[in-house]
């Protein structure tokens, strides 16, 4: 099957680009990696030029994220611009600002899916993580509005110490209200490298309990050491609200700024992109790690935690060990 990854590697283009359109947010999630540096965000005119350049470069899919993208007063105009330029759009939001009017608007654009985070099956638990009372109610209402309009809606559960035991109830709730359900156990430092969120990370025993509850629904197969470790800088890149360009939202090694150079120039010539395209799985520690077939290597999270792309993190290692253990029992 054709994938955007195939397209990227065939043509050497960023077929998928992550646009962090703001770092502002009305929620204060306890584990959030985003640090709002309160600088001047790109204007709609600056985005128009960027989108024209990305279209020229061959980008097809835009992931619009934040912060909370809907906090921008011009978000409708921005999404419409993307749609009119024939991009497909994924929207990551907390759903807080989705009302009937906005849900109707979303039906009119090239929207592939909306992804929102859910942290529990009950308001008290979810709101204790977002630290905003009423955010659960707003979220479930947003899901209802989107599902009613036939918009593909994903709910993602980030498993942490305070909520991981509620995952099954949350999955049942998500499916009941018509959303697809995903989960993740990886918590990273903030993007200024501060490590407070790591206190929320599941221990190995908690991960074992979590995956035993959820079961392993994915198949493991041997990794190919000549493959890229991930798509960062190979088929995707991320652009901050201030115009900074990174390989992804976690691997925040600056490749350039679109206010100083054209995005095509940055994509084709930035040292970090050349470096990532020149390395394969075997060139990282992962290539010789006995756990690699049970791991989803993420050099971005390694970078945030260790400030180097080599080595591993406790979270990645624990997850891979638990998955290997449980896969052996299957």
């Amino acid at each position: 099957m054709k994938t955007l990854y195939n397209v990227s590697t065939k043509y050497g283009i960023p077929s998928s680009v992550i646009l962090e359109v703001t770092y502002r947010c009305n929620l204060r999630c306890i584990h959030c990696y985003v640090v709002d540096r309160k600088k001047k965000e790109l204007t709609i005119d600056e985005y128009e030029k960027l989108l024209r350049d990305l279209r020229e470069l061959g980008t097809l899919l835009l992931t619009v994220t934040g912060g909370e993208p809907l906090i921008r007063s011009d978000i409708k105009e921005l999404l419409l611009l993307m749609s009119d330029m024939d991009f497909a759009i994924r929207l990551f939001t907390a759903g807080y600002y989705i009302d009937e009017n906005f849900a109707d608007f979303l039906r009119t654009i090239n929207l592939l899916e909306v992804e929102m985070s859910i942290y529990g099956s009950k308001p008290d638990l979810h709101d204790s993580i977002t630290r905003v009372p009423g955010s659960f109610k707003k979220l479930t209402n947003a899901v209802k509005l989107l599902v009613e309009r036939g918009i593909r809606t994903n709910l993602k559960f980030v498993a942490m110490k305070p909520n991981y035991r509620d995952v099954l109830n949350t999955k049942v709730l998500a499916e009941k209200i018509g959303a697809d359900f995903y989960y993740d156990v990886i918590i990273t430092p903030r993007d200024d490298f501060s490590s407070e969120p790591l206190q929320l990370r599941l221990s190995k025993e908690e991960m074992r309990e979590f995956y035993s509850t959820m079961g392993i629904s994915f198949e493991f197969s041997p990794r190919k050491v000549d493959d890229f470790i991930c798509n960062a800088g190979v088929g995707i890149m991320a652009i901050s609200p201030y115009g900074e360009v990174f390989p992804c939202v976690q691997l925040r090694i600056k490749a350039g700024n679109i206010m100083e150079k054209d995005i095509a120039d940055i994509w084709n010539n930035a040292e970090i992109f050349k470096f990532l395209r020149g390395r394969r799985l075997k060139d990282y520690n992962c290539g010789s790690c006995p756990l690699v077939d049970f791991c989803f290597p993420c050099i971005g999270s390694i970078w945030l935690e260790r400030r180097t792309m080599d080595g591993c993190t406790e979270g990645l290692k624990n997850r891979a060990e638990v998955l290997r253990e449980l896969a052996g029992e299957k």
Partner: peptide
């Protein structure tokens, strides 16, 4: 339907 014309194909 979002689309992009690349070198020798349209995706």
């Amino acid at each position: 339907v979002a689309y992009r014309k690349l070198l020798d194909e349209t995706v």
